[in-house]
Design a binder for these strands. Structure first.
Lengths: 333, 333
DNA sequence: TTCACGAGTGAAAACGTTGCCACAACACGG
DNA sequence: CCGTGTTGTGGCAACGTTTTCACTCGTGAA
């Protein structure tokens, strides 16, 4: 900065004002400083400016795993939103660390970030409070907690819509494959199951759900169990696409044709769903990320109230894995 | 830090020493300070420490797109490696910005990062030099440039191995589907084609390649063209899995059975490849990321020489989309 | 002419660390 | 008993910004 000041023949204060876009600088001087900075390809040190302003210009994003498709897409949205506001994105992957006592302290968040965004972390009330201790706004993605800033989808409504789609096609034996990791099931997991069950109940049908470990294997096993019933379902809704993919594999191996003999539906609109022509529920993770990023920026600027909650829409993506049951003409969907 | 010092009854210097793990502090005092810091759940401000040490404790990772599967996985590896060294990860997605003149300056890298890792950016020599201007080590992932620190796979060898696999099965009419975006083709794209061509030549067979736009659509079109030949290939190698998925779709629509009538092979071991039971070439992106991260840490510590190049192995993943051509008994593969 | 005012500018004090130097206390060999 | 290290500790000047305050101009009103 010293160099820029010298080159432009002004003081440090003036350079600082120009680079921050602060008012009170003669237009002519402003241009001169701007040019000097460009020529030296000078960028302010966020370290130093943060030291005095207390703002770091960085937002921490906490995700459980980076490998999974959903997080990459959500991160892309967050990244784009933050760039609009000239904020940098710090990414923390807390896979196994999560289990550790006080994992929140393992991350150097304290004065190193302006805000924290958690994605699909299903935080407990206590974990939220610990993150509050960091002293910066907390934005929850994929989780809705009262009084807290969050962006989420209505998993109940999504699953209900999917169930209705199958019912409208004329199916009556509609089963559901859900997931549970040990004894713990995530919020979205519970809500999707509830959406399915309430819709079935409202149609006067009894729900039929099989809960297995998440992932492809879980889907395979669950579908195997469903097929071995003396009167198998004619339609199956999976809690998410990966489960549906596993189910699909079992169906292929068993020679059950989709959708001719059985309709299969997923949830998430995972990349691979398109490949298998799987009807599913889209939840627009990119837009969710974008919204969360903008919300964060808003909260930081004070233009958005803390505690604002945004519900993102879900949408059924019709492909060719669902159809009216054999020998029936379904109602128009 | 003032607070911690007061609580422990020592000076700022001592607290700083303890928190940095610097030597020259009585064990008893060290414990006392440690406890005081814990009680206040105090974390040093990287901003302030970076100001004086010149190290930021952060590494910038530059990727073209975050949505794509590969980058999420690679990022996971990088993230894990950086955490081992207590470094934070800044992620920059430079999708469309890339096209802009001087995009490197749009990122506040100058004194805000200790190193820069680029993933699959296929940087030109000039872009490399501009990133050098940032004044921190540059590590290239998925690209090998002489004299530069890099982690990459041998695309030529990978494609050659895949081609040999098909030849060993007994195929002689082996086609290749490649990609090109306009007139520009990436380094890995060129190398894979070369690997295929040289292996075919060595076997005394003439190469047969179709180049289309990348992605599923390109694969669909290319496979359509191949099938319309008066004497179609019995095996097809795709430049990457997404192309293979497109090709697979065309095959399904045309009623060509895989692998009975045609063997199909991909490259990347994309998540979706497992779903379609696609034989492919694995390139272990997680390990690539992990290695790149560790390499970066090494360069920063001075334990690894700048300019070190690491070649990651590729491995053929045998699934059920390749087999000996109809009516033949292939050699043992 | 004098005075008040605003706009543009520079000087200097923060911000929270680290690194260097000085200093005290103590042990040890002569 | 005196030098000579050695070990642990505190003081203070950086680091590169922003912010506050004071200063110097013109400019227009009294």
């Amino acid at each position: 900065m010293r160099d820029v000041a010298d080159r432009a023949g002004v003081s440090l204060s003036t350079v600082s004002r120009v680079l921050r876009g602060a008012p009170g600088v003669a237009p002519q001087v402003r241009r001169r400083v701007q040019r000097a900075a460009d020529e030296l390809s000078y960028v302010v040190s966020r370290n130093a400016s943060g030291l005095v302003t207390g703002r770091t210009g960085r937002v921490a994003v906490i995700v459980p795993f980076l490998q999974e498709w959903y997080f990459g897409v959500a991160l892309a949205g967050i990244s784009d939103a933050l760039r609009e506001a000239d904020l940098d994105m710090l990414v923390y992957q807390v896979g196994e660390i999560r289990a550790r006592e006080g994992w929140t302290r393992a991350l150097p968040l304290r004065r190193n970030t302006d805000a924290v965004i958690t994605v699909s972390m299903d935080l407990s009330e206590e974990e939220c409070r610990r993150l509050d201790d960091v002293g910066v706004p907390l934005v929850l993605v994929g989780q809705c907690e009262r009084e807290r800033t969050s962006v989420y989808i209505d998993n109940r409504a999504g699953a209900a819509g999917a169930t209705r789609h199958l019912l409208n096609l004329g199916h009556t034996r509609v089963a559901y494959i859900g997931s549970r990791n040990g004894s713990w099931s995530s919020g979205s997991s519970r809500h999707r199951l509830e959406g399915y069950e309430s819709t079935m109940a409202r149609a006067g049908l009894s729900p039929w759900s099989v809960i297995r470990a998440p992932g492809i294997e879980g889907g395979e096993l669950a579908m195997g169990e469903l097929l071995s019933d003396h009167d198998p379902p004619t339609a199956v809704l999976a809690e998410f696409d990966t489960i549906a993919l596993g189910a699909h594999r079992t169906l292929r191996r068993s020679g059950v044709r989709v959708p001719t003999s059985l309709s299969l539906m997923g949830f998430d609109n995972h990349e691979a769903a398109a490949v298998l022509d799987l009807t599913t529920v889209d939840q627009a993770p990119y837009d969710t990320g974008l919204t969360a990023g903008r919300l964060t920026v808003g909260v930081l600027n004070g233009t958005t109230e803390r505690g604002t909650q945004v519900e993102m829409p879900t949408q059924i993506i019709l492909r060719h894995s669902t159809a009216a049951p054999r020998g029936t003409r379904g109602l128009s969907s």
